[in-house]
């Protein structure tokens, strides 16, 4: 997971880790998000997706966590299932938002909705 890889975006070399997570939070912009989405076969970053990703980034910076899933959708004025519809699962949204490799419990939480009791 520590293996570094690079993606080329607008003549910049952007570092990602072995699992495809962005290494530096501040490297992110819409083009980088598109490049990450392409790697994950998630199609183009539409305006809807972009609004979600921006909210997730803001929340992460502020709260050091992923926002409650329904809060994400409420904030971008979308139905409660918007994350699943746009990104398959919230973990992919985390990745495309350019957040660093999450800890394992967070992976289960975002990938399968599993929280420890």
């Amino acid at each position: 997971m520590t293996v570094l890889d690079y993606i080329e975006v607008q003549n910049r070399k952007i570092a990602i880790d072995g699992d495809g997570y962005l290494v530096n939070y501040d490297d992110w912009n819409e083009s980088v998000a598109n490049a990450l989405a392409e790697r994950e076969n998630n199609g183009k970053i539409t305006d809807e997706k972009l609004a979600i990703l921006k909210f997730i980034r803001w929340y992460y910076k502020e709260y050091n966590f992923f926002p409650m899933l329904s809060a994400v959708c409420k904030n971008v004025h979308k139905p409660k299932t918007c994350l699943q519809e746009e990104f398959y699962n919230p973990l992919l949204a985390w990745k495309l938002a350019g957040l660093p490799h999450p800890e394992e419990p967070l992976i289960s939480l975002l990938e399968a909705g599993q929280s420890p009791g």
């Binding site: 709260y63 050091n64 966590f65 800890e103 419990p105 967070l106 939480l109 929280s115 420890p116 009791g117």
Partner: peptide, 9 residues
């Protein structure tokens, strides 16, 4: 807490 939520979160 298990999730690692900080107080303000």
């Amino acid at each position: 807490n298990h999730l690692g939520l900080e107080p303000h979160t």
